[in-house]
Amino acid sequence: TETYETTDETEARKIAEELKRRGLTFRIERHGTTIRIESD
């Protein structure tokens, strides 16, 4: 499991693209301005 936290929408998108490219599944949670991406 890898966890990323960012407040930057663009960075979050880049992380999501990278995880997809590596064939990982992940979920995105939003907590206020923080975007949390957690891979399975």
Score class of each variant (00 low, 15 high):
T1L: 11
T1D: 06
T1V: 12
T1H: 13
T1W: 13
T1Y: 13
T1N: 10
E2C: 15
E2Q: 11
E2A: 09
E2L: 14
E2R: 11
E2F: 15
E2S: 08
E2Y: 15
E2N: 09
E2H: 13
T3C: 15
T3K: 09
T3V: 15
T3W: 14
T3F: 13
T3P: 03
Y4Q: 01
Y4H: 03
Y4E: 01
Y4N: 01
Y4M: 02
Y4P: 01
Y4F: 07
E5A: 04
E5L: 10
E5K: 03
E5Q: 06
E5V: 12
E5N: 04
E5I: 13
T6M: 04
T6I: 05
T6N: 01
T7V: 06
T7Y: 06
T7F: 06
T7E: 12
T7D: 12
T7H: 07
T7K: 07
T7W: 05
T7M: 07
D8V: 04
D8S: 12
D8L: 05
D8A: 02
D8G: 02
D8K: 03
D8N: 08
D8M: 03
E9N: 04
E9L: 10
E9W: 14
E9A: 09
E9M: 08
E9T: 05
E9Y: 09
E9P: 13
T10D: 14
T10P: 03
T10Q: 12
T10I: 11
T10F: 09
T10V: 12
T10G: 12
T10N: 13
E11I: 11
E11H: 07
E11Q: 08
E11Y: 07
A12N: 01
A12L: 04
A12Q: 01
R13T: 09
R13E: 10
R13I: 11
R13V: 09
R13D: 07
R13Q: 12
K14D: 07
K14A: 11
K14L: 12
K14Y: 08
K14C: 15
K14I: 09
K14Q: 12
K14V: 08
K14W: 08
I15P: 00
I15N: 01
I15W: 08
I15Y: 09
I15M: 04
I15R: 03
A16E: 06
A16Q: 11
A16F: 07
A16M: 15
A16W: 09
A16R: 04
A16V: 15
A16L: 13
E17W: 10
E17L: 11
E18S: 11
E18T: 07
E18H: 08
E18N: 09
E18M: 13
E18D: 13
E18Y: 11
E18A: 09
L19R: 01
L19E: 00
L19T: 00
L19N: 01
L19I: 03
L19W: 06
L19D: 00
L19F: 08
K20A: 11
K20N: 07
K20F: 09
K20P: 00
K20H: 10
K20M: 11
R21N: 08
R21D: 04
R21H: 06
R21C: 08
R21P: 00
R22A: 05
R22I: 03
R22P: 01
G23E: 03
G23S: 02
G23T: 00
G23P: 00
G23C: 15
G23N: 05
L24Q: 05
L24G: 02
L24F: 07
L24Y: 08
L24I: 13
L24R: 10
L24T: 03
T25H: 15
T25P: 08
T25M: 09
F26K: 08
F26M: 05
F26T: 10
F26Q: 07
F26A: 12
F26L: 05
R27W: 14
R27S: 09
R27A: 05
R27H: 14
R27Y: 13
R27V: 13
R27F: 14
R27E: 12
R27T: 14
R27Q: 09
I28Q: 03
I28C: 15
I28Y: 05
I28W: 08
I28L: 04
I28F: 05
I28A: 02
E29C: 15
E29H: 10
E29S: 14
E29T: 15
R30Y: 14
R30P: 02
R30T: 09
R30G: 04
R30I: 14
H31G: 03
H31T: 10
H31F: 13
H31W: 10
G32A: 03
G32H: 02
G32I: 01
G32Q: 02
T33D: 13
T33P: 09
T33E: 12
T33Q: 11
T33Y: 06
T33F: 08
T33G: 11
T34M: 12
T34L: 13
T34G: 04
T34S: 06
T34A: 05
I35D: 00
I35K: 00
I35F: 06
I35E: 00
R36G: 01
R36L: 08
R36K: 08
R36T: 06
R36W: 07
I37W: 01
I37Q: 00
I37R: 00
I37L: 04
I37V: 04
E38T: 15
E38L: 15
E38H: 13
E38A: 08
E38F: 15
E38N: 07
E38W: 14
S39L: 15
S39A: 14
S39T: 15
S39G: 04
S39Q: 06
S39W: 15
S39D: 02
S39E: 04
D40M: 14
D40G: 12
D40F: 14
D40I: 14
D40E: 11
D40A: 11
